[in-house]
């Protein structure tokens, strides 16, 4: 049994780590871009960011003043159980968010959309969002928190099959150009692309592609992996860099996730996960162990399953000889 108090402590710790510590994969990606960035101003921006991430860790203060919208992704092993069930887990996550907001501190960004009421704790109606997925043959739960900035760098569009790869590239460029100017996308970013699904799912997939896959990760479909590389190169070829200054660093990496969609359409979303790519994951085991990491491992083979029945990869390999 996974204890509910342990869930609250873990969610609190995750919130602190996400807001203070830049993930290693993204840090390495930006360090690499800083070496090749062509603009003097762009290089200054990137070196300032590297210095900033060091300062955040030294001081144990949030890396960015806009601490984003804290939210959670919970992956539940099919054999795992939580004390008090998932109602208790949700209560623990909400309490941890409120306490962490006050103590770290985070900026209390969450307000009512109409009345702008702010409880100063990042908790409210439908907030923080908690999304769930499941994993076969596992006795653990993974809790991931992501604190993405909210205003710029994301867009959605209904494309059509005839728009093809050209249409995907055009929309990808539209988002980078429009939000890249003045640096509103807080680039260079991990750019997530959601393709297909129903309209809302194309948004969800794109956001998860940006926020839940580390730099260097490739889609298991080789053709999609190739498109990820191609879009990354395209984004870095427009002559724009950090803060929208003339330069070369826009896309630290590009991740594409797909979902089967309506036969007449090709919905697409593009999301930029900013220079403060706040994410942290913990795996909680039934025996009380907790392991922290920065790779959410959200898109498992089970998540991307294609057929009617779930066939584990090893079994499907065996079956195909």
């Amino acid at each position: 049994m996974i204890g509910k108090d342990a869930v609250e402590e873990t969610a609190y710790e995750l919130t602190a780590r996400a807001s203070i510590e830049i993930p290693d994969d993204y840090l390495a990606g930006v360090e690499k871009m800083a070496e090749t960035e062509e603009g003097d101003l762009g290089r200054f921006v990137l070196s300032s960011m590297l210095e900033n991430w060091e300062a955040a860790k030294e001081d144990r203060r949030a890396m960015c003043g806009d601490t984003g919208l804290p939210r959670y992704y919970v992956k539940i092993g099919n054999e795992a159980a939580v004390e008090g069930g998932f109602i208790a887990l949700e209560a623990a996550i909400r309490r941890a968010t409120a306490r962490a907001t006050h103590e770290i501190p985070l900026r209390p960004n969450r307000v009512h959309p109409l009345w702008r009421t702010d409880h100063n704790n990042n908790v409210g109606i439908n907030a923080p969002e908690i999304e769930y997925s499941f994993e076969p043959d596992a006795e653990w739960i993974d809790i991931t928190t992501v604190h993405k900035g909210g205003l710029f760098g994301t867009d959605y569009r209904m494309l059509f099959p005839g728009d093809g790869i050209d249409g995907i590239k055009r929309f990808f460029l539209d988002v980078l150009v429009s939000f890249g100017k003045r640096g509103l996308a807080c680039q260079p970013a991990i750019v997530g692309v959601g393709l297909g699904g129903s309209k809302d799912i194309s948004m969800t997939l794109g956001k998860q592609a940006a926020c839940l896959r580390p730099v260097g990760d490739r889609n298991p479909d080789p053709a999609i992996a190739e498109l990820e590389e191609e879009l990354k190169a395209l984004g870095n070829s427009i002559g724009m860099g950090p803060m929208g200054f003339v330069g070369s660093s826009m896309v630290v990496d590009c991740h594409i996730e797909v979902g089967y969609t309506h036969t007449g359409g090709m919905p697409i979303s593009v999301h930029c996960f900013c220079l403060s790519s706040r994410r942290a994951t913990a795996r909680m085991f039934m025996d009380g162990r907790v392991e922290h990491r920065t790779d959410p491992k959200w898109f498992t083979p089970y998540m991307r399953r294609e057929g009617v029945e779930w066939t584990p990869p090893a079994a499907s390999l065996k079956a195909s000889g």
């Binding site: 900033n52 003043g65 806009d66």
Partner: peptide
């Protein structure tokens, strides 16, 4: 401001 954002540096 630069970045964005250099929140820890500005906080200091």
């Amino acid at each position: 401001t630069v970045g964005y954002g250099t929140g820890a540096l500005l906080g200091r």
